[in-house]
């Protein structure tokens, strides 16, 4: 049942990425027109706008969800590619453990970075 579960989550992670990619495009490329998320400066990556967005819990959560979805989606895809090299059972198991541990480490580090940026922004 594991492959059925992983594939389904792979698809769901793809959908999450699609939604957040749309949000990213809206904020970075359309918001010059809309001005919702960039209240301080017309340019989306201006320091004042970045700080303003980082103060919002919505963005902190968004960064963490996107990070999790992108890591899972990408690492599962990488796993499938590497499995097609004709690996033995031991190598497959080792690869599963490596990718899972690596993914979790990156997720924890990235989540901490997103949370810390939000906390820092609130002090500015």
């Amino acid at each position: 049942m594991r492959d059925q579960r992983l594939w389904t989550w792979h698809l769901l992670a793809g959908l999450v990425i699609l939604v957040f990619l749309g949000l990213h495009m809206g904020i970075m490329h359309l918001d010059v027109l809309l001005g919702i998320f960039n209240p301080k400066d017309p340019h989306p990556v201006a320091w004042a706008n970045v700080v303003e967005r980082a103060k919002l819990g919505f963005f902190t959560v968004s960064y963490i969800v996107l990070l999790g979805a992108a890591l899972f989606h990408g690492l599962y895809g990488l796993r499938n590619i590497l499995f097609e090299l004709g690996l033995g059972a031991a190598a497959k198991k080792g690869l599963n453990v490596t990718l899972t541990v690596g993914g979790l480490v990156l997720f924890v580090f990235g989540s901490w970075a997103a949370w810390a940026a939000g906390a820092l922004a609130k002090t500015l």
Binding site: D3, Q4, F83
Partner: peptide, 10 residues
């Protein structure tokens, strides 16, 4: 069987 590695996932 289908939900495992033998299934359509690859």
């Amino acid at each position: 069987v289908l939900a495992t590695e033998q299934g359509p996932w690859k």
